[in-house]
Amino acid sequence: MAGAVAPFKPITGMLRRGLILDLSIALGLGFTFGNAFWYGYHMPRTNARDAHYKKLEEQRAARQGN
């Protein structure tokens, strides 16, 4: 058994390549979906909220005559 040759090639380097690919995909998707959330949901909601409070402040100022 000491001189037996395995019928398949050793897996050297596969873990490292797979890890780099998995990390690249995870970071890429995380960045993509993070930006999609930030600019597709968070910023429009924030701008709508700010516009609402600006309108209320303008109405309040108009009632007070400022």
Rank of each mutant, 00 (worst) to 15 (best):
N35V: 01
F33L: 03
N66S: 05
M43Y: 08
M14I: 15
S24H: 00
E58S: 09
M43D: 02
F8V: 11
L23T: 13
F8A: 05
A26T: 08
W38T: 12
A62F: 06
L23A: 12
A26K: 08
R45A: 10
T46Y: 11
A26F: 14
R49H: 09
R17I: 07
N66E: 11
N66M: 06
P7D: 01
N47R: 14
S24F: 08
M43N: 03
Q59N: 11
P10L: 06
A62T: 06
V5T: 13
A61F: 10
L23W: 09
K55D: 08
R45L: 08
D50K: 11
F33E: 00
V5H: 08
Q59W: 05
A48V: 00
L21T: 15
R60N: 11
F31T: 14
A2R: 12
N47D: 13
G40S: 03
T46F: 14
H52K: 13
P7I: 02
L56D: 05
N47H: 12
T32P: 00
N35C: 05
G18D: 06
A2Q: 09
E57F: 10
L29K: 01
G13S: 07
L23S: 10
R60H: 09
N47V: 12
A61R: 15
K54S: 14
K9A: 15
F8M: 03
R63P: 02
D50H: 03
G18W: 03
A26D: 00
T46A: 12
E58P: 00
W38A: 13
W38G: 02
L27A: 12
G3H: 12
H52E: 10
G40F: 04
F33P: 00
F37K: 07
